[in-house]
């Protein structure tokens, strides 16, 4: 019947409005739900989510050794040529030539933090760091060399 439907409409509408108002009213009264970070003030205590990806870094251990074999898998995986592997040949103690990296050049200004290089790396040599304060005065500063000077590959990583 028309009248019944009309009245149902009115009360249904009112009820749905009240449900919405209950939700915002809950947020209004529960300030611990606030998710705003007061960034420059809480720089020391800032906790970022695990999924946050800031830039690609190459971890080194205490002996200045990394795990990169120079296989260029990351370079091939990168969709916009952010990584560039420059290889060299080391002479092993047995007198054999062995391929190793000279430099792993990383263009932060091109990187979209897509994580494909990390996934592609067979020896887990590179990871995503959670840094985010990337601004510099000169664009050239955004081109980084990921391996430390004088570093060499860890033993046992092939």
């Amino acid at each position: 019947m028309f009248i019944v439907k009309y009245i149902k409409d009115v009360f249904g509408g009112l009820k749905s409005l009240l449900i919405g108002m209950r939700r915002t009213g809950y947020y209004f009264t529960h300030h611990k739900e606030i998710i705003t970070e007061q960034y420059p003030d809480n720089r020391d205590t800032l906790v970022l989510a695990d999924r946050f990806k800031g830039e690609v870094v190459m971890p080194h251990d205490e002996n200045n050794e990394h795990r990169c074999t120079g296989c260029t898998a990351c370079e091939l995986a990168c969709p916009n040529a952010t990584l560039k592997v420059v290889t060299k040949f080391d002479i092993t103690p047995e007198g054999k030539k062995k391929k190793a990296i000279d430099k792993l050049v990383y263009h932060l200004e091109l990187c979209t933090m897509c994580n494909l290089c990390i996934v592609a790396c067979p020896s887990d040599a590179i990871v995503m760091a959670q840094t985010f304060e990337h601004s510099v005065f000169n664009r050239a500063d955004l081109t980084k060399i990921l391996n430390n000077p004088g570093s060499k590959i860890m033993d046992g990583v092939e």
């Binding site: 915002t24 009213g25 947020y27 209004f28 300030h31 739900e33 606030i34 998710i35 705003t36 007061q38």
Partner: peptide, 13 residues
């Protein structure tokens, strides 16, 4: 302020 608190923000501070 009301807007911010209802949207789980802090508002002008």
């Amino acid at each position: 302020r009301v807007a911010a608190w209802m949207q789980i923000r802090l508002g002008p501070n």
